[in-house]
Amino acid sequence: MEEEVKKVLIIGIRGALAQILSRLILENHPTWEILGLDARSVSNIPKQKGLIVKKIRYSRGSFENIFRDHSFDYVYHLARVSHSTNNHSDFTQRLELNVMGTNRILDLSLRFNVKKIIILSTFHVYGALSDNSIFLKEDAPLRASLKFPELRDVVEMDQICSTWIWKYQSKIDSVLLRPCNIVGTEIANSMSQYLKSHLSLKPIDYNPIFQFIHEFDMANVLYRSINDLPTGIYNVATDEFITLRKALKIVGGNGIPFPISLASVMNNFLNLTHLGIAPYLVEYLKYSCLIDNSSLKKHLGDDIFRFKMDESLKLIS
């Protein structure tokens, strides 16, 4: 018997994770149809049977038209704008896109009877603070913006989703994922770039503990969220953890040894992105922010991850 055709919307298709996810969905369900949207150019995205990509402006009108024209079964919101710069105009734009944009996507998903929405947040929302407990659970306070106010759009977006998914749980299934550092050969996030860069600052005065997940494993969690994760918020991390210095050693990044506590001060005057370090990342290079994965494992099992942490790190070196 032929499988029922499902329609999937992936917002933020230009991202590596979204592209791996689309491949994964179509490999497992060749009859499904995916519409991938992005505000950035989509011309370089490899063509796949079943995937249509479109460049759109992230505005209420554009999204409304898209939702009206298609009856999506599943929506992936992977379009959180990265917080890797501290430029004020970027921040205002980020606030608009991440907070207001997310609100619109949630609202439209509800209005147009989407079966399930899966939203990608980040573990950064918990914040890197010296008094962090180990293995923060999903109900831990989100303190990222206490130390670094430029992260408040990320926290705000997460909080909007957290409130929303419980409010409308009887009408729509929703999953909010807070992954640890995603690394891989295709993904180009701040952490991957930091680890690989030969010009980035390597702290000599702190040595926080990190969790890493391979991009393929993360895409697999996103994929399995459709059928295997009930409505809720989930941290995504493997059981393994590693000190920053060991991780850098595995990747082979020959950065510049530097007291990162001075970098915190310099961050107020300089744009540290030129030194291979996103300003928000400074705090995460000082203090650990480890997340608990027991909720995720409860639903997906103990053997969900294909890549060991050192394998994931070696692959990006």
Binding site: S130, S133, I134, D205, N207
Partner: peptide
Amino acid sequence: AGLPFIGDLSAQTGAILGDRD
């Protein structure tokens, strides 16, 4: 636990933040 150098050295020797968890 939050001091540069000292916090890291303490943690390496097993002395960590006195937190319940």
